[in-house]
């Protein structure tokens, strides 16, 4: 029963970099974090892929051989994956129960709504007893302008409405943001208040914007986690949130740190102490 985080978001939001950073963090912390690439159109993947959908099908092949355009190719690939889900099941079964798996998903919204491949895939994985949550990557540049912020939040929402999973929004690329803007945003912690602090002269849509902000607040959709690949601490912050959502913390066995120096049997008590120390 591995734990999974579906990483979704529009192209260029930083999904792939995010996965790479978390994997590196896992290596350092000797926590086993695997990445599965589900994007058949991905290029230049900077992380180790334990499972890669491109092993069975790629968009380039579909375009070349079946004369699809880029869209048709992508939909074909995802439907192919769904039709051959036993391949994925087999791969997932190979993981240890306490492993954490990141799914690097394709960004096209059509796969979540019009051709509901992703919701079906999620349903299947839940049947295989994988505990999932979804992390929506939102480019933090959108904090610069209230309307862009609402646009970003809604774009994520339209995909997440289709997925029956606990949600988490990751503000990516926070290193590109002025520190005070980010700090102020996180401190406010309320969309309504955030929008009030911004200059809002387009009164025609003001009422609509206010209603949306209220909704975001009411359903605490604003639990944003900042993330920057240049910040060493951010992977652990994100994982803390994700672990709560997937109940990783409750379920995981107390792991004995891997024996690096090659010592023989270790006393469980000292191992536990080491672990506590490590967590501190």
């Amino acid at each position: 029963m591995p734990f999974g985080v579906l990483v979704i978001g529009p192209a260029g939001a930083g999904k792939t970099r995010f996965c790479a950073a978390l994997q590196t963090y896992g290596d350092v912390q000797s926590r086993s974090i695997h990445v599965i690439n589900l994007d058949p159109a991905a290029e230049d993947i900077p992380y180790r892929t334990d499972v890669d959908v491109r092993e069975i099908v790629t968009v380039d092949d579909a375009m070349a051989e079946l004369k699809f355009g880029p869209n048709g190719g992508l939909v074909y690939c995802m439907e192919y994956l769904l039709a051959h889900s036993e391949w994925l099941e087999e791969k997932l079964l190979a993981f240890a129960p306490e492993d954490t798996i990141l799914f690097d998903c394709p960004g096209q919204l059509e796969l979540y709504t019009h051709v509901p491949v992703m919701p079906r895939l999620v349903a299947l994985m839940q049947r295989w007893d994988t505990r999932l949550c979804v992390a929506y990557m939102m480019d933090s540049v959108s904090l610069g302008e209230p309307s862009k912020f609402i646009a970003g939040a809604l774009a994520g929402l339209s995909a997440m409405l289709q997925l029956p999973l606990p949600r988490l929004t990751v503000l990516s690329k926070t290193d590109l943001l002025a520190p005070d803007v980010l700090e102020e945003f996180l401190e406010i912690g309320s969309a309504t208040t955030f929008l009030q602090t911004c200059d809002n002269r387009n009164t025609k849509f003001l009422k609509l914007t206010t209603v949306i902000a209220n909704l975001l607040d009411d359903h605490s959709l604003l639990s944003y986690v900042p993330f920057s690949i240049h910040d060493e601490d951010s992977p652990s912050h994100v994982l803390t949130y994700a672990d709560q959502l997937t109940q990783y913390t409750d379920e995981a066995e107390v792991r004995i740190p891997r024996d690096i120096e090659g010592e023989e049997e270790e006393d469980p008590d000292t191992a536990f102490k080491a672990l506590m120390h490590h967590h501190r």
Binding site: T113, A153, Q162
Partner: peptide, 27 residues
Amino acid sequence: VDTPRSRSPATFMSNMVYACSILHKLR
């Protein structure tokens, strides 16, 4: 909007939420 695909209320809603997102993005 793809009307036949929006027959399902959930898809319709996602579609409209995205339209709303575009409204805010491009104003």
